[in-house]
Simulated assay, not measured.
Amino acid sequence: MDRPELGLQQLHAFTVLAEELHFGRAAERLGIAQPPLSQQIRRLEVKVGHPLFTRGPGRVALTPAGNELLPAALRALDEVAVGLDAARRVGSGAAGRIRIGFSASLALTLLPGLLSAHRDRCPGVDLEIREMTTAPQVTALREHVIDIGLLREPPDEPGLSTETILSEEFVVVLPAAHPLAARRVVPVEALADEPLVLLPRSAGPTVHSRILDLCHDAGFEPRLGQQAVEWQTVCALVEAGLGVSLAPASIRRIRLTGVAYRRIEPNTARTTVAMAWRHDDRNPLVSRFLETVRGAS
Rank of each mutant, 00 (worst) to 15 (best):
S297E: 13
L108C: 09
I98R: 05
R3I: 11
R270S: 11
I41L: 04
V125Q: 01
L84T: 10
C215F: 02
R42C: 04
P179W: 02
V145K: 09
L11H: 00
A27S: 04
P51L: 03
E153S: 14
L62V: 02
G24F: 09
I254D: 03
L237N: 08
T206E: 12
D156L: 14
S105A: 14
E128G: 10
Q34G: 04
P57W: 07
V273N: 14
L44R: 04
E20R: 10
L106S: 05
L214D: 12
G225Y: 06
I148A: 07
V207A: 14
E157W: 10
L21T: 08
G225R: 06
A296W: 09
T54I: 05
L84G: 08
L160S: 01
A61L: 11
I148N: 07
P123N: 08
T271C: 14
E79V: 05
I32P: 02
R263I: 08
D147S: 11
R29W: 09
G243F: 05
A218C: 07
H178P: 10
A247F: 00
P64L: 04
G219E: 10
P175D: 15
P155V: 13
R255W: 12
G66L: 02
L17G: 04
V186H: 03
R255K: 13
G96H: 04
L115F: 10
R223C: 13
E19A: 15
F23H: 10
E157M: 14
L180K: 02
A260E: 00
T133D: 14
P4F: 01
Q39N: 11
P51F: 06
D156H: 13
R3W: 12
C122N: 13
F23W: 14
Q10P: 07
W277N: 02
V16Q: 02
P71L: 00
A104P: 05
E131D: 12
Q137C: 12
L52D: 03
V48W: 08
H22W: 08
A94K: 06
V82N: 03
W231V: 08
A27D: 04
R25K: 15
A86G: 08
A276N: 06
E157K: 07
F170V: 02
G96Q: 13
A81E: 06
R130T: 13
I211A: 13
E169D: 14
V259W: 00
G7F: 11
A177S: 15
P71V: 04
